[in-house]
Design a protein around this nucleic acid. Structure first.
Length: 200
DNA sequence: CAGAGGATGTGCT
DNA sequence: GCACATCCTCTGG
């Protein structure tokens, strides 16, 4: 049920970003389990991708995590406010990651409502990378955690989407990446209300 | 050691 | 639709 270490060693991060749609992301914090179905992701293609934090082999304290083998979480703070959760899928000299941009609340929804201070009926509860992380209780203390461990993990609940149920679009907020900003490496489930805007 | 800026969300207009 | 919150990280001096 829990995705194994080997799953995260897949070198095709674009495939992985698509394959993660429908997988279920869990966290357990002080005995509270929450989980959501991943409905929106973005692929970041290692050293070749100007939008990636590992572009050009860039290596700093923050990005050091990307230079480990896959199967770790990469959480960093954006705009001083939002925690963004990534799945590291690096192997050898390929330092890839997948950003989880939205989840559909599945388990522990009342806990998510407390964390987000809004009813689960509102799509904004877990729509967008900052909100999805907050709903699941993910903050920077989750950085570098093992995704096959006891605090954060991903399960396959046999939810499958057909190719025509998935939309590919350019990634959000990466205008600085020049020509790479146009790559259609944002994937989301068509019509799912928890997908962040723009969702068409 | 200071300063700028960022893979965004919210609330007000 | 737009302003602004808020702070870590990287860069340059």
């Amino acid at each position: 049920m829990k995705l194994p270490y080997s799953y995260y060693q897949n070198q095709d991060v674009v495939f992985l970003a698509k394959d993660l749609l429908g997988k279920v992301l869990f966290t357990e914090i002080e005995g509270n389990i929450t989980a959501g179905i991943i409905v929106e992701t973005e692929a970041y293609f290692g050293v070749m991708d100007k939008a990636s934090h590992a572009y050009g082999g860039r290596r700093t304290d923050r990005t050091e995590i990307l230079y480990n083998d896959g199967g770790l979480s990469y959480v960093y703070l954006c705009y001083g406010i939002h925690h963004l959760f990534n799945i590291v899928s690096s192997v050898k000299d390929e330092h890839h990651a997948v950003l989880v941009r939205a989840v559909e609340p599945l388990i522990g929804t009342e806990i998510m409502e407390l964390r987000r201070n809004m009813p689960v009926s509102k799509a904004a509860i877990s729509s967008g990378p900052g909100s999805a992380a907050k709903a699941l209780g993910i903050d920077r203390s989750f950085n570098t955690k093992d995704l096959t461990g006891e605090e954060i993990w991903i399960e396959d609940h046999n939810i499958r989407y057909t190719p025509d149920e998935i939309t590919a679009r350019p990634r959000i907020g990466v205008a600085y990446a020049q020509e790479d900003a146009f790559l259609p490496w944002r994937f989301f489930v068509k019509g799912n209300k928890y997908v962040s805007k723009p969702n068409k």
